[in-house]
Amino acid sequence: MGEMQQSTNEMRICVPGNTAELQRVRSFVASKARKSGFSEQGVYNLTLAVDEACSNVIRHAYRHDNSREFCVEIDLEQGQFIVKIFDSGSAFNPLSISAPAMKEYFEKFMRGGLGISIIKKVIDNIEYIPADAKHPFNILKLIKTLDDRSI
């Protein structure tokens, strides 16, 4: 994780793989989204999507291993608010998971799997870049266009 820590700056936060850190990540994302002019609902939705993605990293990629860190970075470019989540765990591509059909979900009192549904509903564009020989981190990109700041 040294590479991630070296590039720490005000647009990036790195935290241990522990759900206790989610609050800190949310505060970070919310403050940047407010500065970019998102409505309160827009801030909530964006923060929620990042929370869901980070919760998945902690649970699935790191299996609650506190000794591992993940990073969240925000880039503002070409009218887009881009949140990148870097992790060094096993690859977990949310795009490969199909969102549950909610009618069946409720009829069968199913559990789990809702984080992905939330991300897909509130984020405009999602990209996933698994780690490879050149890039040691999995990167999930959540992209919100800035003309869509109200929702």
Binding site: R26, E52, S55, M110, R111, L114, G115
Partner: peptide, 11 residues
Amino acid sequence: YISSAGLGVFM
């Protein structure tokens, strides 16, 4: 604030 983990408790 609530995330899907909170919703899951009711399920």
